Computed example of a mutant assay.
Amino acid sequence: MAQARLEVADIFRAHGPAWRLANAGNISLDQLKVMSAIERCRTAALGGHVTRCEDCAHEHIAYNSCRNRHCPKCQAGAAKAWLAAREAELLPVRYFHLVFTLPKPIADIAHQNKREIYNLLMRVSADTVIRIAADPKHLGARVGITSVLHTWGSAMTHHPHVHMIVPGGGLSADSTKWIACRRNFFLSVRVLSRLYRRLILEGLARLHEAGRLQFFGDRTKFADPAVFHAFLQPLRKIDWVVYAKEPFAGPKAVLAYLSRYTHRVAISNSRLIRFDADSVTFKVKKYRVNGAGRHTTMTLATGEFIRRFLTHVLPKGQHRIRHYGFFGNGNRAANIARIRGLLGAKPPSREGTCGENDNDHVPRTIALPCPCCGGRLIIEGTFAPAQHPRAPPETNRTAA
């Protein structure tokens, strides 16, 4: 029999209560809610369904998901629905991938001011691309952007950065023409980096002046405007990391990429190797190393693993995926239709959408496949949270 896959939930259930007790007073309400959701996810505590496979008649108990956006088990369904909407918006052009990061000194401040600095990072990175792209010396067009906020490195350290997906071109100022960029070049990374640096530093100064930044521990000295100004000065002289990856090999490759990145959490269950009362071992990737040594393992004390995971809990209401430019939510559909018309592209087919034959007689199903044969699971009944599931009725059982 195959060994059950290790999950973050297992670590939380085994060691979460002791960790919460030891760190009482230093855990936010949002972090406590995330821990509770992950511990209860797909257990009887949330209720569930009694199902039967329509192919092999296997009877299965499917517990409900917590649907928390930080839960490693709940992202596949959310990503699938989100990607279906994005597929209908794909344009028949090349797409580019940009990454904007924050220098470590600012990332350290962001740890204590997540909402303000994460919002600044996403807003300024998008504004940087929009401004440079609109300049006739570069592209002279209004572009569309999909931005995804990540706050972690492979070892779950705090590393805020934005992954940005941009079509290779944009609308002219009067929206009557599509202006394409060069085949393998979108915008100058050097120019982007310098404007991005200036806008972030100006934004930080405004936040500090407005009293919207908080400082704790050894950073309380930054509350003094003169000290904070002196802290920012060296950052004006260093190069900030903005880089462009190879353009995607067609719109479908964009979807494959987004399926891995948009709904990712700090660590997936597939990266966990083992854990005990003292430590957790998991897979990590060294991005600055090429070859065989790039993939390795790391072992952290169990309490430190939990702390690092919870570092990446976003503030309530913080949007991790945002759209800018002609992808802005207000006019997205009209802009996409206009661009398709300019490019002479057909709208995507709507095959597989719900039709007039859908009715109450279609059996209710769940997204999970049958664990025996992979077939579709039909819902036979439900049970409430914290209740024991009833057995499927005898009439639905298949004779051996």
Rank of each mutant, 00 (worst) to 15 (best):
M1C: 04
V8W: 00
V8R: 00
F12D: 05
R13A: 08
P17C: 06
A24M: 07
Q31D: 07
E39Q: 14
L46M: 13
D55V: 10
E59Y: 00
H60T: 15
I61K: 01
A62D: 06
S65G: 15
S65A: 15
N68G: 02
H70F: 06
A79V: 01
A81D: 12
A85D: 13
L91M: 08
V93H: 08
R94Y: 07
L102D: 03
K104F: 03
K104W: 00
P105L: 04
P105Q: 06
I109S: 02
Q112Y: 13
Y118L: 10
M122G: 09
R131E: 15
R131N: 14
A134L: 12
A134P: 03
K137V: 01
K137C: 05
R142C: 04
S154F: 00
A155V: 07
M156A: 09
I179Y: 07
V191D: 14
R194L: 14
R198L: 09
R198V: 05
L199F: 04
G203M: 06
L204E: 06
A205H: 04
L207W: 03
H208F: 05
D218E: 13
K221I: 05
K221D: 11
A226M: 08
F228M: 06
Q233V: 09
W240R: 07
K245P: 00
E246V: 08
G250Q: 10
G250K: 10
G250C: 09
S259N: 14
S268A: 15
R271I: 03
S279W: 00
V280H: 02
G291N: 05
H295R: 04
T297A: 07
E304C: 00
F305T: 02
I306R: 01
F309Y: 15
L310Q: 07
L314R: 09
G317S: 12
R320F: 01
I321N: 02
R332H: 10
N335H: 15
N335K: 05
K346Q: 15
S349F: 01
E351N: 11
C354G: 04
D360W: 13
R364Y: 04
L377F: 10
I378C: 02
E380H: 10
G381K: 06
A384L: 15
A384R: 15
P385R: 09
A386C: 13
H388G: 05
H388C: 02
P389M: 14
A391G: 01
T398V: 13
